[in-house]
Every structure is written in C-alpha cells, then in structure tokens.
Amino acid sequence: MSLAQQFRTGDTPLPDIIILTHKLARAYDMGGEVVRALRGVSLQIRRNEYVAIMGPSGSGKSTLMNLIGCLDTPTGGEYWLNGQKVSDLGDDALARIRNKEIGFVFQTFNLLPRATALHNVELPLIYAGLGAKERRAQAAQALERVGLGDRMEHRPNELSGGQRQRVAIARALVNDPSILLADEPTGNLDSATSGEIMEVFGALHRQGQTVVMVTHEHDIAAHAARVVTLRDGLVATDQRQAA
C-alpha cells in the first residue's frame, strides 16, 4: 500500500486516484436504535484498477457499494470520485454524477421489461440530454461492444440471462463512465454464463476501464487484481493478486 496517498481531511486526492474514501461512515436509525453499517472505511482506487469487494452479509459491502455508486450519502467521512468531493452533494447533483461517472451492473439486471435492448441502453443518454439520433448510434455501438449487435430490437424476455446481463453492461458503458460498478453481477447466472460475463469484464479492464465489483463468491473475486474484504463495517484485508 505504499502507493496510497497519505490523505488527511482538507486534502485533495492525487489525479490518478479515481475513488478515495476517507473514514467513510454510514449509520442507520432503525427505530431509535442506531446501526453503524460502515464505521470508517478509507480506501483508494486508482484509474484502471480491477477491484473486488468481499465480505459476509452484514459486513457493510452493500452500504459501501451504494455510497461509491452515489445512490446514498454518508453520515461521516469523505468520498471523492474522479477528483470531485461528492460526499456532501444533494440529490440532483448526485443524479448527475451517477449519470456521468458511474455505470451500474446489477445482480437482477434491472432492465426495463417493455423496452427493447436498444432502448434500455439509451436510457442513460436520455438523462444526459442527448438527441435521439446520437443516442441511437451510441447505444448500438455499446451493444456491439458486448457482442449483441444482432439483438438490439429484442425485449429482455426474449433474451437469455447472459444476454440480459450483457445488455446491462452495454447500458453501464454507454456513457463512458469513470467506474463500472457491479453488484453481484453473476449472482443470477449459471457458472458457464458467469464465466462469459467475467471475460467481458476482463476485456473491459484490459481496455482501460476501472472496474469495482461487489461479490461474495471467491472464484468470481479471483478475476479481480485486488480484493478488499470488509468485516463489521471496516476494511479487514486489502490484497493484490495475480489475475
């Protein structure tokens, strides 16, 4: 960890560090009782890293994932994403950040069931304010990138699980985000399909994409170059490994 910046409150992260959390905390008020899901996570992820976040259920990995994904705001500490401090931004500013900086891949794919693959991939571009023609072109390109150039007009229920997840990956990539954020991306897939999806992730990483993936499966985490393990709301281990 000698490469990590010695970060103190008031500092700004080095330009190469795309994700920096400093003593990040998140507490929930559960009917009077305060549950501290994260108790001070300090983590630095550089551009083009491939990181898996692991941990047993209740370790806080989903909470950390929601904070990194700007879906939630911390109750303590700082979060810097791509040189911008986002931990104290409001709802709409976070929505803009999500649109620009983050590509989500979910366990349950979360595609709009009545929309075609192409339209699903277009969604982030709609919120980015792009015109219809440009949207269509970029979405088609993203689908081709994940090998679904011939399935653009299919609806999710006409696609296999692996194909659905590829659509979701295309949707995550279409805005050219700073990080690809995947939450149990193979949780709903069989092992052969899981392998295919992991190959897609690997290829994206080789092309320069920063990938952060939450998983509880060791063989999936093994695809990443670095594994961060959480336990009881704190970082337990942080190891680099041979891909």
């Binding site: 994904g69 879906l71 709802d91 709409d92 929505a95 803009r96 999500r98 649109n99 620009k100 989500f104 979360n110 595609l111 709009l112 969604l123 982030p124 919120y127 980015a128 949707r171 805005n175």
Partner: peptide, 10 residues
Amino acid sequence: GVRKALGATR
C-alpha cells in the same frame, strides 16, 4: 430506482 441510478433527477 433504475432510472434514478442511471441519472434521472427528481
């Protein structure tokens, strides 16, 4: 939720 995650504002 999906729309918001993809960047839809309120």
